[in-house]
Design a binder for these strands. Sequence first.
RNA 1: CGGGAUGUAGCGCAGCCCGGUAGCGCACUUGCAUGGGGUGCAAGGGGUCGUGAGUUCGAAUCUCGCCAUCCCGACCA
Length: 492
Amino acid sequence: MAFEKVKRSENYSEWYNNLVKNADMAEHSAVKGCMVIKPYGYAIWEKMQAQLDFMFKETGHSNAYFPLFVPKSLFEKEEKNAAGFAKECAVVTHYRLKSNPDKEGSLMVDPESKLEEELVVRPTSEAIIWNTYKNWIQSYRDLPILINQWANVVRWEMRTRLFLRTAEFLWQEGHTAHATRDEALEETKKMLDVYAEFSEKFMAIPVIRGIKTENERFAGADDTYTIEGMMQDGKALQMGTSHFLGQNFAKAFDVKFQTKEGNLEYVWASSWGVSTRLMGALIMVHSDDEGLVLPPKLAPIHVVIVPVYRSQEEMLSIAAAMKPLMAILKSSGYTVKLDDRDTYKPGYKFAEWELKGVPVRIAVGPRDLDSKTAEVVRRDTKEKSIVPMDDLYTHICTLLLDIQENLYRRAEQVRSVKTFLADTWDEFLDVVNVKEGFAMAHWDGSAETETKIKALSKASIRCIPLDQIQEEGVCVFSGKPSKGRVVFSKAY
RNA sequence: CGGGAUGUAGCGCAGCCCGGUAGCGCACUUGCAUGGGGUGCAAGGGGUCGUGAGUUCGAAUCUCGCCAUCCCGACCA
């Protein structure tokens, strides 16, 4: 293998594309706008899934599965939601092919097989789910319903990028039903916190929790909560959203329940999701010119051992010397790989495992066997150290914890260096276009101003932070009064 | 969906302007040496030049259509 190297500082998006391909995570497929997630990339996604799934279960949710297809009549019931997605829906109109009489060996859509009602390929599942919940809910005793589904969805995007935006992507969508407004709102916020905790503790990416403005909000929601992360190039990435749906879907699908007092009321709802887009965040926040850098908590392989040897006997004695370490690491829950491929040289292996982001690498050769040591290299700082064999286990355990923390600190540092207060329009443009980062600026609260700012600067309001400091100020664009700063940035 | 660019071996590219039946580097196969940061030497295998039509005695090369990818916009998780 030879890898084309692109420097992060020279062309960020080319660096990203290159990395995704070279680290063997994903590639473009024969289907326009759709990607193939390769085993190594999928292994990382599975790590994310496993942790998120655990956290959803811990907060009382169960998994279920709803159909890929949504009858158009159901889809259009919640008008705002349907209108929001209308432009990017794939639609199934026929159910059969037949051989083409005009061209041998080719197939054509059988015009006889036209569907009575078109089926929309789900861009999200609120419609089919709420149509189902209607049958499940009669009484307050049936509530709450706390369901999550792992699924694929399709949004027909014009311009795609591996993991960040593809026509089909994998995600999870939680859909909950509650008896009261407060409970639904509490659920919405709780799941936002789950996402934030996942991002910070597992992905090692600091996020800003906030509320979306009306312009940026999910079409069917009363409020959209978001976690926003900053990539190394200073752009924002929306990493997860949690929607307070009010009674919008309950009303659209006529989902009512009888209260203790015997009254009929519409139920309250939330929905929340994160997608394979998180893979993009993971790559863009931590990686460097050598390749991927993975936080230990999401790395499919924690430790790789590269033997350095001349003869097969040397190789076997190294493997034997490493056996106890591998066993004890494995029993502690770490994945260890001994790279015993005889067809590649050590230097090549070093480069390859760096490219794949394995957090810790151990190199062991004859000299180490003599001195009872090993060379340990951490991926995040590339720092090397010689460690006595007897100390390897504790050293590696400590190192993995330290790498996890260091990645978070480093990401936080990048974000803080690229976050600026902007009080005038000139300062604002400077932050957004020249310094390339987050602009904390006052905004008058109107959609018109937000739209104008976006048109002129290409920066949008990422969110109104939940921990927004109340302070008097004037809007950076209109000069009208404002009570707090919001986060502006260019975004993915 | 608009503007620009590209499509030649698994990957990266040259050849195209000036038509004459395809080449380089890496990867791959085999052998020998080598092995503590992307091994060296030697010998091999692999391509309907994105696709369809047109011009021509002859097309990777010229013309048109289509498809795909990338970059820049609009839209979006």
